[in-house]
Amino acid sequence: MTVLAGEYFRSYAVVGLLAVVGVLFVAVAFGAGRLLRPMVPTPEKLLTYECGVDPVGEGWAHTQVRYYVYAFLYVIFAVDSIFLFPWATVFAETEYGATTLVEMFIFLGFLTIGLLYAWKKGVLTWT
Protein backbone atom coordinates (compact mmCIF):
# COMPACT_ATOMS: atom_id res chain seq x y z
CA MET A 1 0.00 0.00 0.00
CA THR A 2 2.85 2.33 0.62
CA VAL A 3 4.56 2.14 -2.74
CA LEU A 4 4.01 5.33 -4.63
CA ALA A 5 3.57 5.22 -8.36
CA GLY A 6 6.80 3.78 -9.70
CA GLU A 7 6.40 4.63 -13.36
CA TYR A 8 5.98 8.23 -12.51
CA PHE A 9 9.37 8.46 -10.94
CA ARG A 10 11.31 6.60 -13.56
CA SER A 11 11.73 9.50 -15.95
CA TYR A 12 12.78 11.69 -13.10
CA ALA A 13 15.31 9.06 -12.10
CA VAL A 14 16.99 9.51 -15.44
CA VAL A 15 16.96 13.24 -14.98
CA GLY A 16 18.49 12.70 -11.57
CA LEU A 17 21.15 10.55 -13.13
CA LEU A 18 21.90 13.28 -15.61
CA ALA A 19 22.20 15.72 -12.75
CA VAL A 20 24.74 13.44 -11.15
CA VAL A 21 26.65 13.27 -14.39
CA GLY A 22 26.55 17.04 -14.61
CA VAL A 23 27.88 17.43 -11.10
CA LEU A 24 30.61 14.97 -11.87
CA PHE A 25 31.51 16.90 -14.97
CA VAL A 26 31.79 20.12 -13.01
CA ALA A 27 33.81 18.44 -10.31
CA VAL A 28 36.18 16.93 -12.81
CA ALA A 29 36.55 20.22 -14.60
CA PHE A 30 37.31 22.07 -11.36
CA GLY A 31 39.68 19.28 -10.31
CA ALA A 32 41.52 19.45 -13.58
CA GLY A 33 41.66 23.19 -13.40
CA ARG A 34 43.16 22.97 -9.94
CA LEU A 35 45.96 20.79 -11.32
CA LEU A 36 46.63 22.95 -14.33
CA ARG A 37 46.47 26.47 -13.03
CA PRO A 38 48.96 28.40 -10.91
CA MET A 39 48.16 29.39 -7.30
CA VAL A 40 49.97 32.51 -6.18
CA PRO A 41 47.63 34.53 -3.98
CA THR A 42 48.76 37.97 -2.88
CA PRO A 43 46.80 40.44 -0.74
CA GLU A 44 46.39 42.77 -3.68
CA LYS A 45 44.98 40.02 -5.80
CA LEU A 46 42.50 39.03 -3.15
CA LEU A 47 41.29 42.58 -2.75
CA THR A 48 37.78 43.33 -3.86
CA TYR A 49 37.84 44.91 -7.30
CA GLU A 50 36.41 48.36 -7.61
CA CYS A 51 37.65 49.87 -10.84
CA GLY A 52 41.20 49.49 -9.68
CA VAL A 53 41.01 51.80 -6.68
CA ASP A 54 41.00 50.55 -3.10
CA PRO A 55 37.54 49.47 -2.03
CA VAL A 56 35.50 51.88 0.05
CA GLY A 57 33.34 50.57 2.83
CA GLU A 58 31.97 47.12 3.13
CA GLY A 59 31.06 44.89 0.24
CA TRP A 60 27.60 44.16 1.46
CA ALA A 61 26.68 47.78 1.53
CA HIS A 62 23.10 48.85 2.11
CA THR A 63 21.64 50.06 -1.10
CA GLN A 64 18.30 51.46 -1.69
CA VAL A 65 16.44 48.61 -3.24
CA ARG A 66 13.81 49.62 -5.66
CA TYR A 67 13.32 46.14 -6.91
CA TYR A 68 11.39 44.77 -3.98
CA VAL A 69 8.21 46.12 -5.46
CA TYR A 70 8.84 43.99 -8.50
CA ALA A 71 9.50 41.10 -6.21
CA PHE A 72 6.07 41.61 -4.70
CA LEU A 73 4.48 41.86 -8.07
CA TYR A 74 6.20 38.73 -9.20
CA VAL A 75 5.37 36.70 -6.14
CA ILE A 76 1.76 37.68 -6.41
CA PHE A 77 1.33 37.17 -10.13
CA ALA A 78 3.62 34.31 -10.89
CA VAL A 79 2.23 32.11 -8.21
CA ASP A 80 -1.25 32.85 -9.38
CA SER A 81 -0.31 31.56 -12.76
CA ILE A 82 0.28 28.07 -11.40
CA PHE A 83 -3.46 27.75 -11.57
CA LEU A 84 -3.29 28.19 -15.30
CA PHE A 85 -1.57 24.94 -16.03
CA PRO A 86 -3.83 22.35 -14.42
CA TRP A 87 -6.72 24.31 -15.70
CA ALA A 88 -5.25 24.48 -19.17
CA THR A 89 -5.29 20.72 -19.31
CA VAL A 90 -8.98 20.35 -18.59
CA PHE A 91 -9.78 23.01 -21.10
CA ALA A 92 -9.81 20.46 -23.88
CA GLU A 93 -12.39 18.25 -22.19
CA THR A 94 -15.79 18.44 -23.76
CA GLU A 95 -18.56 20.28 -21.92
CA TYR A 96 -16.02 22.25 -20.01
CA GLY A 97 -15.46 24.90 -22.60
CA ALA A 98 -17.88 27.64 -21.73
CA THR A 99 -17.60 27.36 -17.95
CA THR A 100 -13.87 27.23 -18.11
CA LEU A 101 -13.76 30.17 -20.42
CA VAL A 102 -15.76 32.24 -17.97
CA GLU A 103 -13.51 31.17 -15.16
CA MET A 104 -10.54 32.07 -17.28
CA PHE A 105 -11.81 35.54 -17.85
CA ILE A 106 -12.44 35.97 -14.15
CA PHE A 107 -8.91 34.91 -13.51
CA LEU A 108 -7.46 37.15 -16.18
CA GLY A 109 -9.60 39.94 -14.81
CA PHE A 110 -7.94 39.57 -11.45
CA LEU A 111 -4.49 39.72 -12.94
CA THR A 112 -5.38 42.68 -15.10
CA ILE A 113 -6.77 44.63 -12.21
CA GLY A 114 -3.65 43.88 -10.22
CA LEU A 115 -1.51 45.11 -13.04
CA LEU A 116 -3.66 48.15 -13.54
CA TYR A 117 -3.37 48.95 -9.88
CA ALA A 118 0.39 48.64 -9.87
CA TRP A 119 0.64 50.74 -12.97
CA LYS A 120 -1.64 53.51 -11.80
CA LYS A 121 0.07 53.62 -8.44
CA GLY A 122 3.25 54.47 -10.28
CA VAL A 123 5.11 51.39 -9.20
CA LEU A 124 6.44 50.93 -12.71
CA THR A 125 7.86 54.38 -13.19
CA TRP A 126 10.95 55.65 -11.47
CA THR A 127 11.38 59.10 -10.22
Binding site: F83, E93, Y96, A98, T99
Partner: peptide, 17 residues
Protein backbone atom coordinates in the same frame (compact mmCIF):
# COMPACT_ATOMS: atom_id res chain seq x y z
CA UNK B 1 -14.29 28.36 -5.38
CA UNK B 2 -14.87 27.90 -9.09
CA UNK B 3 -11.23 27.28 -9.81
CA UNK B 4 -11.09 24.86 -6.93
CA UNK B 5 -14.01 22.91 -8.24
CA UNK B 6 -12.53 22.84 -11.68
CA UNK B 7 -9.30 21.52 -10.30
CA UNK B 8 -10.98 18.84 -8.35
CA UNK B 9 -12.59 17.50 -11.46
CA UNK B 10 -10.11 16.35 -14.05
CA UNK B 11 -9.93 12.69 -13.11
CA UNK B 12 -13.62 12.26 -13.51
CA UNK B 13 -15.61 12.03 -16.63
CA UNK B 14 -16.05 15.64 -17.42
CA UNK B 15 -19.33 17.09 -16.44
CA UNK B 16 -19.85 20.77 -16.71
CA UNK B 17 -20.75 22.32 -13.44
Amino acid sequence: APAMAALAQPALAAQAQ
